[in-house]
Amino acid sequence: MSDATAEAAPPEATIQPVDAETPFQRFVSEFLDSKVATAAFLFLLAIIALAIFAPWITPQNPYDLAQVDVLDGRLAPGSEAFAGYTMWLGSDGAGRDLYSAILYGLRISLSVGVTSGLIALVIGMAVGLLAAYTGGRTENVIMRIVDLQLSFPAALVALMLIAILGKGVDKIILALVVAQWAYYARTVRASALVERHKEYVEAAACLGISHARIVFRHIMPNCLAPLIVVGTVQTASAISLEATLSFLGVGMPQTSPSLGVLIANGFEYMLSGRYWISVFPGVALLVTVVSINLVGDHLRDVLNPRLNTGGGK
């Protein structure tokens, strides 16, 4: 793997005039240096496209009862459905085409993960900026709460909330947000604290610019890089956490079958050898989570200048 990148890298480096690069171009070319991360990114784009276009590229809507035939239940991969099309990934216990069910499940898993990730990001960013900018007692109180929450694993926090709140899509999103906001707050606060004491912030304050403008126009943009890294990794863990809760039966309801629900439904058939009902949704979940993590891992290397000068081979 390393030999391939070593061969590919030199010609690019000689062709590109170094002084003409914008930061964004440099970022893109550095990102593309890693074949694994590039492949993961393309995979991710493909997965998102499949999820978005699911209704147009699947043979059936698995939750339209008129299109599902119970007689098709538990068919092996490659069997022909009653309606005439081939079920390449087989069918589940209720006769749904698994390929269709997986794409629809991806939609739900991705949207829950991304929605909760975004809400947690916004809340965490606001809290982190507030803590770093105001300092003093406010910062102390906020960071105490953040530290306290981070001393419990996110999965446990989410599970506790679910135990308290009960099932439902809104409750899952709420649990994921509460379980994750502290990670964002800690990240933003750490980088905002560094930025706050730099000269440009002092200069802006001397010019009489309002606090809000300093925070949002000057400090916030400089905290985005670590936030993006944490955001990708946290979104992956939100998706996998939702799947875990759903698998345990305390997550998404049967009416919103995410990948975790599909896997849970297939579990009972697994011991009798009908592996595909659980395995294929699981593979979809896996590819999604691993792709996001690989992209996030490489983003961290590219966006963190400290690591590049160090052991950044």
């Binding site: 996998s240 799947a243 993590n293």
Partner: peptide, 29 residues
């Protein structure tokens, strides 16, 4: 070593319940 590190990334990324299912399928079924 690269294999070990790749394995550890997988260990972080793979949802526990999914690995458990695969264990059951492989070693038990």
């Amino acid at each position: 070593s690269k294999g070990i590190m790749a394995g550890s990334i997988l260990g972080f990324s793979l949802p526990t319940f999914w690995v458990g299912l695969m264990f059951i399928m492989l070693f038990a079924v």
